[in-house]
């Protein structure tokens, strides 16, 4: 998986949200600029949304990390 242009190793079957949390990467900044992290872990809250392979607003918790997948957070 490539996060904000940097290649990282992620084990098979790990969700993008879990992988970002492990790497201490903030997926999203709120309108106020406040850093947010995953809340519900099950596709409800949209707090872990990131851009995946160019598609914005993807819920990181609902997508498995894959080799070569490009993930961009609000930090990147």
């Amino acid at each position: 998986m490539i996060v904000n242009g940097v290649s990282v190793d992620v084990a098979d079957g790990v969700s993008v949200a879990a992988a970002l949390m492990q790497l201490k990467i903030i997926p999203r900044r709120a309108l106020s600029g406040e850093a947010r992290g995953p809340l519900c872990g099950m596709g409800v809250c949209f707090e872990c949304r990131v851009t995946i392979d160019g598609q914005p607003h993807e819920r990181g918790c609902m997508v498995r990390a894959r080799e070569g997948m490009e993930v961009r957070s609000d930090e990147g």
């Binding site: 949200a17 995953p38 809340l39 918790c61």
Partner: peptide, 9 residues
């Protein structure tokens, strides 16, 4: 939520 994230890696 945390439990789900743990189950997912």
């Amino acid at each position: 939520g945390l439990q789900a994230l743990v189950k997912n890696g």
